[in-house]
Amino acid sequence: MPSKGKSKAKASKGPSKPSTSSTIDPPAPFTRPSRKLDEFLTKLSKQHIYITHIDSKPEDFKKKIFMVPVLMNLLIMAGIFWRIRTIGPFYMKMCSSLMGRFNETTIDTNSIPWQDSVREVLRRTGIFMIDLLIYVFIWPWPRDFFAGRAIGNPVTWRFIVGFRDKEIVVRRSRRWDLNIGNVLDEDSEGSRLAMDNVRKAVDPIWMSERTGYLMLNREWDLDWKAMIQATKLVDKKTISLDDFKTTVLIHHDDFGWMAIESASAGGSAKEEEGRRKIIAFKDELTAIGKENLFFRWIELVQFESSGPDGFGPEQQRKTMAKAKEMFEAQGVDFDEFWKKIGGMEGMPGMDES
């Protein structure tokens, strides 16, 4: 994070419009984004934080994942249309009755007991409430899925982009970004919130376990329009696909668009290498059908490192001996396995001298 002497600049919260970037470089860990991204950046809102990355999950896997929300939203729409078809005539008759045309929905309070009138009013109130809840809470799901406009929608994105082995994913911060204030002020609660949310969002282990579509959560939206625009720029060869590697983009009044590449966003280069090693470790065990060893390894290291004597070199050697027994009990050559993924150097907690 930057020094406190540079923390008086204000973060931009104004509407998106082209602006001339300052000639002064932003403080670390921020850098200037690649000039190749200039055309893409003009299409982003300055009010939000963005994360770009390349989704390398297999095309068939992405198709299967996408079919789940498609089928779910089609079922919801079918249920809503069925509800409209069955309840629609009732509402039409109610409106007709309100206009003075007598029908079976008309309540003649002078000829029926008041208890029956109250019961009928409560019944109709229940019907109205059910339909109101459907309209307010359920209808927006298929509406936004098939026809959302503010940041686009998944159907338009898939219709234009299709399914690819390598896809550009653009995440956009949700409403929590309204409270971050000056992101360069390392002592502010808002800055810490922003950096915490960013670190979680770019964690390599978390990202390796899901395709882009599954990264929607309470902190981040997917910006479908930005994803379409980025893909079009790559298809036109205006920008390279590699320019959308894992990068955090934040706008600031004094510095314009600022970037943090994945190693800085997630921690030090050493921490990034450790995460990469863990991913390789897990993937290699999964490939040989021994994924359970990964979780047993994590449990073993966590248990041994939490002991009262710390986790110094001697304790690490004892842990490695236990791990070797655990691996070889399942037919995995411990020493050959580590050679295959490049050794233990860089593994968190396993590289102390």
Results as ranks from 00 to 15, higher is better:
Y50R: 05
S262T: 09
E272P: 00
K225R: 11
L41W: 02
V136I: 10
F81Q: 08
K245C: 04
E167L: 08
L132S: 11
I65R: 13
M94F: 15
W220H: 07
E328T: 03
M94S: 11
L216P: 02
F255C: 03
R296Q: 10
K245A: 11
S353T: 08
G181T: 03
W206D: 10
Q229P: 01
G349H: 03
E273I: 11
I107G: 02
I160S: 04
S117P: 01
I138Q: 00
T105D: 04
R32K: 14
M92Q: 14
I239S: 03
D131M: 07
V170H: 01
W297R: 10
P89R: 08
G266L: 09
T238C: 05
R83M: 13
E186Q: 12
L241C: 01
D144S: 08
R276W: 08
E39P: 01
G5M: 14
K318C: 00
R275Q: 12
A280M: 10
I205N: 00
K63C: 13
K8M: 12
G152Y: 05
R164H: 08
A329M: 07
S240H: 07
G346H: 08
I205H: 00
K324V: 03
S21T: 15
N197V: 02
G343A: 04
G79N: 15
W139M: 13
G307D: 01
E345H: 09
K43D: 08
D38L: 08
T42P: 00
M207S: 10
I51S: 05
K322I: 15
A150S: 09
I84D: 04
G346I: 11
S306I: 06
G190I: 00
K10V: 13
G256D: 02
A321T: 09
K43I: 06
V170N: 02
M207Y: 04
V170Y: 04
W224R: 06
L216N: 10
M1D: 09
K282L: 01
C95H: 09
S191C: 06
W141E: 12
I151V: 05
E299V: 10
R119C: 01
L241K: 11
M67F: 09
G346R: 07
G212F: 05
N110E: 08
R101C: 05
M77R: 13
I278A: 00
F145N: 00
I180E: 12
D196Y: 05
F295L: 03
G181L: 02
L41F: 10
W220A: 00
T156M: 15
E59F: 01
G343Y: 06
V301Y: 07
D335K: 09
D108T: 11
I278R: 04
E345A: 06
I228H: 05
R149M: 08
V169P: 06
I180Y: 00
R149F: 06
R174I: 00
S264Y: 14
L71M: 14
M67C: 10
W206R: 13
S97V: 07
F137A: 13
S268P: 03
E299S: 10
D203Q: 07
R32Q: 09
F294C: 00
F137L: 15
F146R: 04
T31P: 03
F303C: 12
E291I: 12
S240C: 02
I65T: 10
H53L: 14
V170I: 15
E104H: 12
D221P: 02
M72Y: 15
F40Q: 05
V136H: 00
M320S: 04
G190K: 04
I341A: 01
E186I: 11
M92K: 15
K270N: 09
